[in-house]
Design a protein around this nucleic acid. Structure first.
Lengths: 159, 159
DNA sequence: AGCCTAAGTAGACGATGTCAACATCGCGCC
DNA sequence: GGCGCGATGTTGACATCGTCTACTTAGGCT
């Protein structure tokens, strides 16, 4: 894989070593690029459209998405990764705080992220192939799924 | 990795080839085992507890979970995988149908799966490390997140 | 000019997945 | 009882991969 990129770049194997410490560093750099672009896309979206934008990014760049979230590049391996991810989450959290009608904005933001993240993953893995084949396109399916949940408004009742 | 398992089994390299066609077949078998066990756990859970059970499985067997959903073993590579996954989803779908108060059970089931799946993935990746570190344990966090959403009851309004 | 650094190249090493050929053991069958 | 066969395992080879070390080359600085 490392030698492969060198070959495609028309350059000798381990020329990459002049630019990256090792294979992991290359992948971490690619993942970081992905996080930055995803964050940009989300920031350009209206709060209600963030979910669709998130899934659209994953479907448009499957390999990149898998690299970012596949566990191959641990978040801790590069502090920049962690902060990029944290910043995206903070933006989402702030959007929920701004709504004002949410009981537990932190839990709601985490749930929203989980929802779109899981949907993206399951779509990539083909687990919804049956559901998306009969319908027209994936975007419509995504809208239907995201439309099936509401975030609770009342303060969470203590058990 | 293949040679590694042979070594650990105290057996010579590519003894595994007597039991699996290649590396992918071994991984597919492991993933299938995971799907079967996950399905069993879910079937043993009450409908409301399925979400927590799903996440608990992922946190208890991170590598297995990643193998099952990491894209390394494509669903299509083994028909048994696809049917195992399909069956688990069907059970969830039926649970939502049985509730009777759900407008679009298919969308709700997909959303529920996405929610717990994404939550499991993000927890594994450490994206909620900040949120889970201050709280006591992960299980409580999971309950809070899952408690932050409701599934819509009215029939979805056509746009 | 002289030199230092960035960038690239060549070659080697260990490890891996896979293939082919050979060995061994246990079982059923005449 | 002897025989043969299939399942299981072993050895050795091959191409490829990631990584290390050493050497070369090109550009910019003083």
């Amino acid at each position: 894989m490392l030698r492969e990129v060198a070959r495609r770049a028309g350059v000798s194997h381990n020329a990459p070593y002049r630019h990256f410490a090792d294979r992991g560093a290359l992948l971490a750099a690619l993942a970081g690029e992905g996080f930055r672009e995803l964050g940009e896309r989300l920031r350009q979206s209206a709060p209600e459209a963030m979910g669709e934008a998130y899934v659209a990014f994953a479907l448009a760049h499957p390999q990149r998405f898998r690299l970012m979230f596949g566990g191959l590049v641990p978040l801790a391996s590069d502090p920049a990764l962690a902060t990029a991810s944290r910043q995206a989450y903070e933006a989402l959290l702030q959007a929920f705080r701004d709504r004002g009608d949410i009981g537990d904005p932190a839990a709601a933001a985490a749930a929203a992220w989980s929802l779109v993240h899981g949907l993206a993953h399951l779509l990539l893995d083909g687990h919804f192939r049956q559901a998306t084949r009969e319908g027209t396109d994936a975007a419509r399916f995504v809208r239907e799924v995201l439309g099936a949940v509401r975030f609770v408004g009342a303060a969470p009742k203590r058990a």
